[in-house]
């Protein structure tokens, strides 16, 4: 292996990290909001809302992210006049927003299931007890349901963040030059797939390791009574 080339490659790929992280964190952040909305819709008594949420989760979990990305980017690109009329074209014109949209919708569908699992884990007795104390509606959610569900959902969500960091690599297929996009360009210029893979792989591993640690710290603050071992077991 040529270490000079490896070092050069590593440095060139580093410049893609901000874009990778930006895409991952923005999509997870926006995705959580959407996921909570979807999870509440799934529990709604008004059936059409539940059907919509069901269909959304079914389609986005049942098809590859790459297909969703191409459908949004190339597929909707075909409808420029219509989108322009609706005043949405500025959004779909930018590859970055298309990638962000695809990633957000995708993670929202998976997140909805995580949040639903968290909500289901809230013991019925706790809710009954709270009701007996006169709590209801928003207060019940804020003080009882949300904290318990959040604690339960956090480890799974930590996993989702790592999956999304990996998923941002697909954005490179629609001209976005994040780490994988830069790696692809370097390979097709130099034909040295090993070194480039080595450098890019190392970058992702380092980033993922750092993010995993941060998530552990966050969990520890939110749920200090869960032992580290328990949390590790849940992550696997």
């Amino acid at each position: 292996m040529d270490f000079d080339f490896l070092g050069e490659t590593f440095v060139r790929l580093l410049s893609g990290i901000p874009l990778t992280l930006e895409l991952a964190f923005s999509s997870v952040g926006l995705g959580i909001v959407l996921a909570v909305a979807l999870a509440l819709m799934l529990r709604a008594r008004f059936l059409p809302l539940g059907w919509f949420a069901d269909a959304f989760v079914f389609v986005f979990r049942g098809t590859p992210l790459l297909v969703q990305l191409f459908l949004i980017y190339y597929g909707l690109g075909q409808f420029r006049p219509e989108l322009q009329e609706m005043g949405l074209w500025w959004f779909f014109r930018a590859p970055y927003y298309c990638a962000l949209l695809a990633l957000t919708l995708n993670t929202a569908a998976y997140g909805a299931e995580i949040v639903r699992g968290g909500l289901q884990s809230v013991p019925a007795g706790q809710i009954e007890a709270a009701r007996a104390f006169g709590m209801s509606g928003f207060t019940l959610y804020r003080r009882i349901v949300a904290p318990i569900a959040l604690r339960q959902a956090l480890p799974a969500y930590g996993n989702e963040i790592i999956l999304m960091i990996k998923a941002t690599s697909l954005a490179s297929t629609i001209t976005i030059m994040e780490v994988t996009g830069l790696a692809h360009k370097l390979i097709s210029e130099t034909f040295r797939s090993f070194e480039v893979f080595f450098a890019a792989g190392a970058i992702y591993l380092i980033v993922n390791f750092a993010v995993t640690r941060l998530i552990w710290l966050a969990e520890h603050r939110i749920a200090p009574d869960l032992t580290l071992a328990e949390r590790t077991a849940e992550l696997h």
Partner: peptide, 12 residues
């Protein structure tokens, strides 16, 4: 820990 697309590129 590494994106699958990168592994595909390596093999390709």
């Amino acid at each position: 820990g590494v994106p699958d697309l990168l592994v595909i590129y390596l093999f390709y």
